[in-house]
């Protein structure tokens, strides 16, 4: 059992948990993830490691309440336990001195960008962070990202904070400003990562994305997480989750990620009926 030491509702329906898991914390690296299970009948779900503290033996996860399992997870509080928690899984981010790197984070993807940006900066890179959210209320960790990056730019889809627009607008400006970008990293919703890749492809900027495929075991045993990268089948849980975004077959991936949509909706409805929506959305944003 893994104890929740700290809970923080970052914005409605996005929570931060700091979880006691010394075995995972001892080896965690930026870019890796964990798989957890809330209760006996529960599903195994993957969450990225948003931060870790080896000395305290803790892992930080930031998750968005989108379906039954994440909503149920959201009802847990400090002092509660998570039944199963395994990691660190996946291949760590490749960190070296690239030069000028842009890290793009969208929505809940801002969280996993954080430790990678920090590591890239520590490795001597000049790191431009670009983060965005649908609106002001959904934006979090501005301060943490500011500290992790050399420079941070923000945007909201509706213009309720900073400037109006998508992260790709800011990325394009950055590209046009001074041209030279050695690497781009993008984590966020699938359409966002896809749009970033389309843009950077035009300018020949190598782009890494972190793919959140469906998963079961996370150890390379089931093949549920397979994606086509450069024409080859790869397992996101062991070969990834980070891949060269220009090689990823996004069309296939987005279809595969909604295989269980009807079942997910059913599970969520049943859960909400039985629990009258106890999640932390505070009335509606999860719906």
């Amino acid at each position: 059992m893994y104890r929740i030491l700290k809970k923080d509702v970052l914005v409605p329906s996005i929570n931060l948990f700091e979880i006691e898991a010394p075995k995972v914390a001892g080896k965690a690296e930026p870019g890796q993830f964990v798989i957890l299970r809330v209760q006996e009948k529960g599903e195994r779900i993957p969450l990225t490691i948003a931060d870790f503290d080896r000395a305290r033996g803790t892992i930080t996860c930031v998750f968005q309440e989108v379906g039954k399992t994440t909503m149920e997870l959201g009802t847990l509080n400090e002092g509660d336990y998570i039944l199963d928690f395994v990691g660190p899984l996946g291949t760590p981010s490749h960190i070296e001195l690239f030069g000028r790197v842009v890290c793009v984070g969208g929505g809940v993807g801002v969280a996993p960008v954080h430790p990678i940006a920090r590591a890239l900066k520590e490795a001597g890179n000049e790191v431009l962070g670009i983060i965005g959210a649908r609106n002001k209320d959904l934006l979090f960790w501005e301060d943490k990202l500011r500290a992790a990056c050399t420079e941070l730019r923000l945007t909201t889809d509706d213009g309720s904070y900073m400037r109006k627009g998508f992260v790709t607008d800011l990325l394009k400006e950055a590209i046009l400003e001074d041209g030279k970008i050695d690497l781009c990293l993008a984590i966020g919703p699938l359409p966002m990562m896809r749009a970033v890749c389309e843009l950077t492809r035009e300018y020949g900027i190598k782009t890494i994305v972190s793919l959140n495929t469906l998963m079961v075991d996370g150890t390379g045993m089931c093949g549920c997480c397979r994606v086509t990268v450069g024409g080859e089948t790869r397992f996101a849980c062991v070969d990834g989750p980070e891949f060269d975004g220009h090689q990823v077959d996004f069309a296939e991936m987005s279809r595969r990620s909604v295989i269980y949509k009807p079942q997910e909706l059913l599970a969520r409805e049943k859960y909400q009926q039985n629990n009258a929506c106890r999640c932390t959305c505070k009335g509606g944003s999860c719906k």
Binding site: K41, R44, T69, C222, C224, A267
Partner: peptide
């Protein structure tokens, strides 16, 4: 893969969905 099909069913008890959370199609 057979592994996924059987793991969802046996380990995760997808045959008892939605009482158990893991789906199978």
């Amino acid at each position: 893969s057979a592994n996924e099909f059987l793991t969802r069913t046996n380990l995760m008890k997808a045959y008892l969905f939605p009482d158990f959370d893991t789906p199978i199609r």
